[in-house]
Design a protein around this nucleic acid. Structure first.
Length: 419
RNA sequence: GUGGAUAUAGCUCAGUUGGUUAGAGCGCUUGGUUGUGGCCCAGGAGGUCGCCGGUUCAAAUCCGGUUAUCCACCCCA
């Protein structure tokens, strides 16, 4: 069949389902602004280096999921696979490097060349926030609290929050060494992915789901033991603040996350209503290195997947089906009446009344059915007799009542009939 | 990249061990007294059964290939 399907992993979003999206976006704007965040819109593609450096060369995302292409000048560009790197690149133009705090959020499409599955698209949409420029456990905790606040407003209940600490660079050197020694002893019996990870990203082994690797991961030494007291204290403070804010969480020592820029607090929010791809949001504290920058940009943030938030809402039967509100549908009989209908529709729209005028010569019954199908609140009827008297009829569809109005009536007066 | 499932009307799906003009519900459309919607009733339109090839007197049905979609692995939002 010659149906037209969009490219794999992409989807058209039709007017009937768009109110879900408005809801997620409007709620985000409302909640995030309560915490002093403003929207930042960055380009949808960047120099490839921004992501390579920003996310880390060894990450899965950079290695095999990016949509990279050459522009006409032969420069390597990449469709953004996530939002943080672009935001940091943009903020270089501000004074964040001097210790000034910036609070921004973004909403938009992201692109990863993965095999589509439930809750996983190649073009998907994220809402993310970044609190950049300062390091404080209070901010890590507030970031998580804001995410929970957002979810609450979306009526998404039953989500599980997992948190962990990744330490900072100086904590990781001894920790990575320890893990390497530990896993090195049994790497021969572990999965192929882990063999690679042992060399370029030992931490990710802790995240491995292969059954063959489980027994080794279970009894792996606790990396936190290698962390400095300062780092441990930082995480403890984050947990304490979350407790005081009444945020429920579970510490998961195996939570690593896939991007290299994370330090200190990392977290993931999962929901049982989603299937295998059950993370609806994730984030943490980060240090992002950008091309030609000596100092990394520091911040804390999260990103939530809009498609997944919608899946969670649907699983919870959160109703959100505002239909297109049509104030008026104009039924006309004959060419002369139709001309009058178009004239009237123009006037009504300028008075902020949403109007559709029927343009086909259908029977009145058919036109009335159309009005009903479109959920019109009122119907204007213009037939031959109305034309003769220079009037039109306004019918209130829910009441079933109707009134006759002269075309000469002042528009402000006419408007009242559509209230 | 690897595995599994599916592919019939705009949508959701039936279609028996191959057998005449391929079905239902919803939707769409026309009408049910001249110009009034929803409910109800009666008609109507709409499908090269994903595509290509094979087996057969005969294929939506069996076989092979191909493409697409979905699900899972993986990874993450």
């Amino acid at each position: 069949m010659a149906k037209s399907t969009p490219p794999p992993g992409t989807a058209d979003i039709f007017p009937e389902e768009i109110s879900r999206w408005y809801n997620l976006e409007d709620t985000a704007r409302k909640v995030f602004s309560l915490y002093g965040f403003g929207e930042l819109r960055t380009p949808i593609f960047e120099y490839t280096e921004v992501f390579k450096r920003g996310l880390g060369d060894a990450t899965e995302v950079v290695q095999k999921e990016m949509y990279t292409f050459e522009d006409r000048g032969g420069r390597s560009m990449t469709l953004r696979p996530e939002g943080t790197a672009s935001v940091m690149r943009a903020l270089l133009n501000t004074d964040v490097l001097n210790g000034n705090e910036k609070r921004v959020y973004y909403i938009g499409p992201m692109f990863r060349g993965e095999r589509p599955a439930a809750g996983r698209r190649r073009q998907f949409h994220q809402i993310g926030v970044e609190n950049v420029g300062r390091v404080a456990p209070e901010l890590d905790a507030e970031n998580i609290a804001m995410l929970m606040h957002y979810l609450e407003e979306l009526k998404i209940t039953g989500a599980e929050l997992l948190i962990n600490t990744r330490g900072v660079e100086k904590d990781r050197i001894p920790a990575a060494k320890m893990l390497k020694e530990y896993f090195g002893a049994s790497i021969d019996t572990m999965c192929d992915d882990c063999k690679v990870r042992l060399e370029n990203n030992v931490w990710r082994i802790l995240d491995c789901k292969q059954t063959a690797c489980q027994e080794f991961i279970e009894s792996a030494p606790d990396v936190v033991e290698c962390f400095t007291e300062e780092t441990k204290e930082y995480f403890k403070r984050v947990c304490e603040i979350l407790d005081s804010l009444g945020v429920k969480y579970t510490v998961d020592k195996r939570l690593v996350r896939g991007l290299d820029y994370y330090v200190h607090t990392v977290f993931e929010l999962t929901h049982p209503g989603l299937g295998a791809q059950n993370a609806i949001a994730g984030g943490g504290r980060y240090e992002v290195h950008l091309p030609q920058q000596k100092k990394p940009l520091i911040g804390v943030g999260f990103a939530a997947g809009l498609e997944r938030l919608i899946m969670a809402q649907e699983a919870l039967r959160v109703i959100n089906d505002e239909r297109l509100a049509l104030d008026c549908y104009i039924v006309s009989m004959g060419d002369a009446a139709r001309a009058k209908a178009l004239e009237l529709s123009g006037k009504l729209r300028k008075a902020n009344i949403a109007v559709i005028a029927e343009v086909e010569s259908k029977s009145m019954k058919a036109q009335m059915r159309s009005a009903n199908r479109l959920n019109a609140k009122h119907v204007v009827i213009i037939g031959e007799s109305e034309l003769e008297d220079n009037v039109f009829v306004v019918k209130n569809m829910s009441e079933g009542t109707q009134e006759t109005i002269s075309f000469d009536t002042d528009i402000n007066e006419i408007t009242k009939y559509f209230a």
